[in-house]
Nucleic acid binder design. Structure first.
Length: 530
RNA sequence: GGAGCGUUGGUCAAGGGGUUAAGACACCUCCCUUUCACGGAGGAAUCACGGGUUCGAUUCCCGUACGCUCUACCA
């Protein structure tokens, strides 16, 4: 049955028709509902991930809904960014604004009529009321009363349809006085919530306040919007951050009044991701201070033009990124730490999600990337790494050699960007050679050795690793020089520095011509310094 | 201030009445590699505190402390 919208639905309401759709309890539908007010932080991506894992595992659907009812904080481009982030992570929604399903629209601003309708229904049935208090009046109350809450104990002293005479309310409407609709929280009730992670939770209704449901601009607040949308979109399970726990009783009340508790989705409140050091929730600021990314991908604030570097641009593989994120608050109880997305789908369980918040550890995040790099075939990511080389002005021509080089150095790379540093000398002559490291121990004998090495190497019929090494060793023996004395000079001549993979491997990949030229070049520099 | 949630090494964590309290990251030592990494072996390091219940509590209960989240016409 299609969901009626707008005037059509209002008509139903006026005529007293039920606003109910039967709940399809047999279908697992999980939604991720970010607000487009900026980039997606780690916590947001993890929430999306857990939503997705659960949905996929249960053979259900994963729905992306955009919560854009706060127009004052709406950031253009943020919605696309969210879509792009999920795509990079390999988390594909079954329904989203760009891929609408049967329960659209998928942006809250496009569902405005729904909220108005349900808010009015609540008022009509005595579960909510109109409030005319101005922001100034509220501010005043907060100053006068230390722990002011708009709730059972104070609402009688406020200007609302509960306290004002009927004719005054009518007049206020006639005068177009701005108003909001607030939830009328009942007195003395215990509100229960069964959380999938935390178990049974209890809240006293007297502690809750009369939350604004519909703002004066006619837009719903989050509280009304989630409940109405989750109902209308037939959502069965809700995973969201722990920060929502205190307002959960409001949502339970709304479910009770609007759609019935028996139709309420199951809740799971996820633990928070904490700063690596110090106290508190991980924030953009904290990340910037500690020097690690917090967004999955680069995010440029359209207003301030401020760029925040993402994990992707920092050189992370999406597989490593989601693996790291999934393990921040969950594990499968074994020693396994490396999981692919399909493995996560297969093994994820909410029962094993931790209750306590987890501190983010950038070192461990890098370790995940290192592990993934080791198990990834370089041919699959070579194009991406090639771009990194080109960004540094290094051109790569031979694709086969490139992949060989990448395979050779990948064990010593933790981030994609490390490849440039670890392998640039294969494609570009070193700008500097650490001649100082060998100059002091340079001798005429060594010099002669290398002159002869050039001659022998140039006569080599094949330029293969074993030949290169054997020739070198035999010659060293013939010259009565310890091979250890010779290896470092050769390395520096070829790569410029002291570290890297086996030097004969390097020579083999560099090719005969380039190897000999580099030795020649350095030999002449060395002779000048003597 | 109030409410809610939480607390196993520095960090992520397994374990849910009897364990030498797993494992990983980071750190330290050694081995391997005539380099640097990778890899291997080992080391140091933990049940927040106080009361119960129990023959026995890291595990169950109650307090306390500490931390976090919320306390907007933001989500």
């Amino acid at each position: 049955m299609p969901v009626k919208l707008g005037k059509e639905r209002l008509h139903d309401l006026i005529n007293g028709n039920q606003l109910f759709l039967p709940r399809m309890n047999d279908k697992i539908r999980v939604r991720f509902a970010p607000s487009p007010t900026g980039g997606l932080h780690l916590g947001g991506v993890r929430t999306a991930l857990y939503n997705y894992l659960f949905a996929r595992q249960q053979g259900g659907q994963f729905i992306l809904r955009i919560e854009d009812t706060d127009q004052t904080r709406y950031v253009p481009g943020a919605e696309q960014y969210i879509l792009d982030t999920l795509a990079w992570c390999g988390i594909e929604p079954d329904e989203s604004p760009e891929k609408p399903g049967a329960y659209g629209p998928y942006r809250q601003t496009e569902r405005k009529e729904n909220y108005l309708l349900y808010a009015e229904k609540l008022v009509k049935e005595g579960y909510a009321y109109y409030a005319f208090d101005t922001p100034e009046e509220l501010e005043q109350k907060r100053k006068e009363i230390p722990d002011f809450q708009y709730n059972i104990s104070h609402r009688a002293a406020m200007r609302n349809s509960l306290t004002m005479p009927a004719d005054e309310v009518t007049k206020a409407f006639a005068d177009h006085t701005p108003y909001v609709i607030r939830l009328k929280v009942p007195e003395g009730e215990t509100i229960e919530l069964d959380d999938m992670i935390r178990g049974k939770l209890q809240f006293q209704s007297n502690q809750a306040d009369d939350k604004v449901l519909l703002k004066k601009d006619g837009m719903p607040t989050y509280h009304l919007a989630v409940v109405v949308d989750d109902y209308l979109m037939q959502i069965s399970h809700v995973f969201r951050g722990e920060e929502w726990l205190p307002s959960a009783p409001v949502h339970v009340l709304l479910w009770k009044y609007l759609f019935g508790l028996e139709n309420m989705p199951q809740w799971a409140h996820l633990p928070l991701i904490l700063k690596p050091e110090g106290n508190g929730k991980l924030s953009k600021r904290a990340a910037a201070q500690s020097g690690f990314p917090i967004f999955a991908m680069n995010w440029t604030d359209p207003q301030t033009k401020e760029l925040t570097q993402g994990f992707r641009e920092r050189g992370f593989l999406p597989e490593a990124f989601i693996n790291m994120l999934a393990l921040l608050g969950w594990n499968n109880g074994t020693e396994q730490e490396i999981f692919s997305l399909p493995e996560l789908v297969a093994q994820f369980s909410i029962a094993r999600v931790h209750k306590a918040g987890a501190r983010f550890d950038y070192e461990k995040a890098k370790w995940f990337n290192h592990e993934w790099l080791k198990k990834t075939a370089m041919s699959t990511i070579a194009p991406e790494i090639k771009n990194l080389f080109e960004a540094k002005g290094i051109t790569v021509e031979d694709k086969a050699t490139f992949i060989e080089v990448l395979e050779l150095v990948k064990d010593r790379c933790t981030l994609l960007t490390d490849f440039v540093e670890q392998a640039h000398y294969f494609f570009q002559r070193p700008l500097q050679y650490d001649i100082a490291a060998i100059a002091s121990k340079w001798t005429i004998e060594k010099n002669n050795f290398f002159i002869e090495l050039i001659r022998s190497y140039s006569l080599l019929p094949y330029w293969e690793l074993p030949d290169l090494e054997n020739t070198f060793r035999e010659m060293a023996a013939a010259h009565a020089i310890k091979i250890g004395e010779l290896l470092l000079p050769l390395r520096i001549m070829l790569v410029g520095g002291k570290s890297g993979p086996g030097v004969f491997h390097i020579a083999a990949l560099l090719g005969k011509e380039e190897t000999l030229e580099r030795i020649n070049l350095n030999l002449s520099t060395l002779s000048k310094t003597q």
